[in-house]
């Protein structure tokens, strides 16, 4: 069992990184640290995808010397998928940071619990 885990050590590292990011997301009450945790999870997903494209002993998928034999190159498809993931994660991060900035401007804190309490107080004041 340990042998097979060692053979798949890069996917295993990606999986552990994902768990680290997820736990960061849960443990921190600071919104910025939550965003960092989400970004760690994104990175783990890229690592996992990129590791699936690797084939031992083959070259990166850039055709050299006109050699178009597929047996000489690694898989180009996961690289394209990782690119998509990176773009989406950049967009999501920017959107989350903008929302956090708006929350900070209103409540002057990044602590989610405090924001929640203040928002509830405001709601009670209104009703």
């Amino acid at each position: 069992m340990l042998d097979s885990l060692w053979n798949n050590r890069i996917p295993a590292a990606a999986v552990l990184l994902f768990a680290v990011g997820f736990t960061t997301l849960l443990l921190h009450r600071n919104l910025l640290k939550k965003i960092i945790g989400l970004n760690i999870m994104d990175t783990a997903a890229y690592l996992f995808l990129a590791s699936l494209g690797y084939i031992a002993g083959r070259k990166p998928p850039i055709i050299t010397d006109g050699n178009t034999d597929p047996a000489a190159y690694a898989n180009p498809l996961p690289a394209g998928l990782v690119l998509t993931g990176i773009v989406v994660s950049v967009s999501v991060t920017a959107l989350m940071l903008a929302l956090t900035l708006r929350l900070y401007r209103r409540y002057h804190t990044l602590d989610l619990d405090k924001i929640y309490m203040m928002a509830r107080d405001e709601q009670e004041d209104e009703t």
Binding site: S4, N8, R9, I10, P11, V15
Partner: peptide, 12 residues
Amino acid sequence: LLLGVLKLPPYG
């Protein structure tokens, strides 16, 4: 997730 990784085909 590590259990899932155990079932992956050999790396590379």
